[in-house]
C-alpha cells in the first residue's frame, strides 16, 4: 500500500500548484500510471478518494488515470507485444521464443491539473 504515501505526496504537490496559480479549488487531476510502476491503480484511486475530501482545496476533485499498456519484448526476435490486464505472455507470438521480458513505463506521472 505505498499508493497511499504517493497520494499524500500528490496532495502536497496540488497545494503548491494551486498556490502558484492562485487557485482555490482543484477540479480535475490527470495521472499517468505505468504498468511496471509497482502501483496498483485501484489502490491509488482508493487513496485519492480517501484523502481528497479532507481538504477544501481537493474536496470536489476528480481523478483520471491513464493506464499505459503492459508491453513485453522478445530477446530473440525483437518483437514487442502489448498485454491486457495483468497477464504475462508465455511466449513470443512472432517466433515462439520464451525469452520474454517486461518493457516500458515504470513511472507514476502527474500530467495535468484543472483548477479554479
Amino acid at each position: 500500500m505505498h499508493e497511499f504515501s504517493l497520494v499524500q505526496g500528490l496532495m502536497g504537490q496540488l497545494e503548491t500548484l494551486a498556490a502558484e496559480n492562485g487557485a482555490e479549488r482543484i477540479l480535475l487531476v490527470t495521472m499517468e500510471i505505468g504498468p511496471f510502476s509497482g502501483v496498483v491503480v485501484d489502490s491509488f484511486r482508493f487513496g485519492f478518494e480517501a484523502l481528497a475530501p479532507l481538504t477544501p482545496l481537493t474536496r470536489n476533485a476528480r481523478l483520471i488515470v491513464l493506464q499505459l499498456p503492459q508491453r513485453y519484448g522478445c530477446r530473440d526476435c525483437d518483437n514487442e507485444q502489448d498485454m491486457d490486464g495483468d497477464a504475462r505472455p508465455e511466449d513470443c507470438p512472432c517466433c515462439g521464443s520464451r525469452e520474454i521480458f517486461p518493457l516500458g513505463a515504470d513511472d507514476v506521472v502527474l500530467r495535468q491539473v484543472e483548477m479554479e
Binding site: 487557485a23 480535475l28 490527470t30 500530467r111 495535468q112 491539473v113
Partner: peptide, 22 residues
Amino acid sequence: VHEDNHEHQESGTRKRVDVHES
C-alpha cells in the same frame, strides 16, 4: 488529457496546467 468534451480556451477562472512530474 481531458476525457470529456471541452473548450480549448480557459473559461472564466478555470485554468488547466500541464505538469508532467513524477
